[in-house]
């Protein structure tokens, strides 16, 4: 997709992570679906390495 034309048609947004971004769009009447997400292991490399071995 050509990104320079992205905002020239109707914008529909999937927001991932920080809910406040979705709330701002809602306030502007932009269709938005919010997905709750945070980085695996909350960004801790040691825990992430253990999860890679142990699954989950």
């Amino acid at each position: 997709m050509e990104t320079d034309k992205l905002l020239q048609s109707e914008v529909r947004v999937i927001n991932i992570g920080l809910a406040e971004f979705a709330h701002d769009l809602e306030r502007c009447d932009v269709p938005v679906v919010h997905v709750e997400w945070s980085p695996p292991a909350v960004g801790d490399p040691r825990i992430a390495a253990l999860l890679a071995k142990l699954g989950g």
Binding site: E36, S38, P40, A41, I47, L54, G56
Partner: peptide, 8 residues
């Protein structure tokens, strides 16, 4: 593991 993987 799921708690840590998801942060939930």
């Amino acid at each position: 593991r799921k708690v840590l993987a998801t942060g939930v």
